[in-house]
Design a protein around this nucleic acid. Structure first.
Lengths: 151, 151
DNA sequence: ATCGATTATCTCGAATTCGTACTAATTTTA
DNA sequence: TAAAATTAGTACGAATTCGAGATAATCGAT
């Protein structure tokens, strides 16, 4: 990178970061009502959604993927287990590991709500057309891949 | 929008939303250490940063801009007031309103840390060049403007 | 001018999230 | 192969965030 970037380049970076925050919050807010109507909060939904599309996961992986602390993961999983949407399954090979697995009830719930959720996401993102979205994703991934170097 | 978007278009929307979440979290995480080193958490920093760049703000506006509930705003402002980084100033024209204003100490802190913060943001976003950033911001704003319709 | 709606802020209790520390299991290393 | 380091998950208390409701002030329509 430039050793002493001009003021305006710095400002564009600040603005990008600000816009990224702002846009995501707007989108999240617009989806919140739908998610709440499923009887879940955003974190619970992201866990169930992860298991639904990726299959059973070790608890640790779940926290990594949705970026919450391990103690928070325990808390969410406890709640979902109480709602009988998922269950803990000890891993026989490695007894440190516990898998989270959707119950039939959890899978049925997702079968019922996922199309609605998908449609809601699609609807709120309709400010971009198909090609714009694909290009936007490419740029996001480029940003993410680079930023991963500074974890 | 298309009445019955093909599966792949739905999936691209889901992926966009996922990537947006993921990328922002990566960036936020990489900036967290810097912000903590200033003695502030992310929310406190965003309040102080807002006042620093936009000048005094009614407390209500602060909550709006950084997207937190009004009760959370009261809490953060309390903490910053205890740290003597800002002060509450009752508005004489409208006695419902209370302004938040940086103290000299708050301004001095920002004078000291803002260049460092800006450089950190710029550094982590260096995966895109100047022009790519500007185009990316344009797209973000387009998305945001559209999504605002579904609040 | 007054009553009802709206606005700005705060209080309070509950829900969520985190950080730290701990246990148990596994892997690494010397 | 035994000790040390790492990994997975949980417990627990503290910090943060929220939602609902209260209070006070202002605005708007009559």
């Amino acid at each position: 990178m430039t050793l002493n970037p001009p003021e305006s380049e710095m400002n564009v970076s600040l603005m990008l970061f600000y816009s990224l925050n702002k846009t995501l919050r707007t989108i999240q807010k617009s989806l919140e009502t739908a998610i709440r109507s499923y009887g879940l909060n955003a974190t619970e939904f992201s866990v169930v959604r992860l298991l639904y599309s990726m299959g059973n996961q070790p608890i640790q992986k779940i926290g990594d993927k949705i970026s919450i602390a391990s103690s928070s993961t325990t808390y969410v999983i406890d709640k979902l287990e109480k709602k009988v949407l998922l269950e803990r399954i000890p891993c026989p090979n490695d007894r440190r590991i516990v898998w989270a697995s959707l119950t039939p009830k959890g899978r049925q719930l997702m079968d019922a709500i996922f199309p609605n959720y998908t449609a809601a996401v699609h609807k709120v993102l309709d400010g971009l057309n198909f090609d714009e979205k694909k290009e936007f994703i490419t740029t996001l991934k480029k940003l993410d891949r680079y930023a991963e170097n500074f974890k």
